[in-house]
Nucleic acid binder design. Structure first.
Length: 157
DNA sequence: CGGCTTTGACCCGCGC
DNA sequence: GCGCGGGTCAAAGCCG
């Protein structure tokens, strides 16, 4: 998948998106935009033209919506949160290939949600990056992925 | 054999 | 203290 597969919504499309799904949880305090972070935080399918994406920030300036072509991936929201980077993807698929190799190291049921949360660590020796993946309890057609940390290596699979 | 999942146990911080 | 919730460990099993 190339960078060109991802583009921001234009303003008309953006207006049609129901943003009520996208309330920011209290524990997700906003802490700057992604371009403040090295490219290594981002990879594969979520690599997008952030300068353009920022132009369609919501009024709070804390999220943006992206149109992603494809059967099962249509709308994403991204957020930058205190060294974490989270996005929601409308997808049937649980495992999204983001160009890195991940090793699963835990799975927990979360309170108030019927869906488990999965914990992954980057497979590269010494790389501190983790991510967790869970289905949105309010709208199971979405998968929420949260990245934490910065890869200390190039993408390599 | 090597790398990955699976899974229950363990740890730790926090509120009562 | 103690229990609960969230996060992690690690032994065992699975699979190429």
């Amino acid at each position: 998948m190339s960078n060109d597969d991802f583009r921001p919504l234009d303003s008309a499309e953006s207006d049609r998106v129901d943003r009520s799904d996208f309330e920011i949880p209290d524990e997700w305090t906003f802490d700057g935009w992604l371009e403040d972070y090295p490219e290594s935080v981002i990879s594969g399918p979520i690599q997008i033209p952030f300068d353009q994406a920022n132009e369609i920030n919501d009024s709070a300036g804390t999220s943006s919506l992206l149109q992603v072509p494809g059967e099962n991936e249509t709308v994403r929201e991204r957020r930058e949160v205190k060294g974490r980077y989270a996005f929601k993807t409308k997808t049937e698929v649980e495992i999204l290939d983001d160009g890195y190799r991940w090793r699963k190291y835990g799975k927990k049921m979360v309170k108030n949600s019927p869906n488990p949360r999965n914990y992954y660590r980057c497979s590269v020796e010494g790389c501190p990056v983790k991510k967790r993946v869970e289905r949105d309890k309010d709208d199971p057609s979405y998968v929420i992925t949260t990245y934490e940390g910065i890869h200390n290596h190039q993408r390599a699979s």
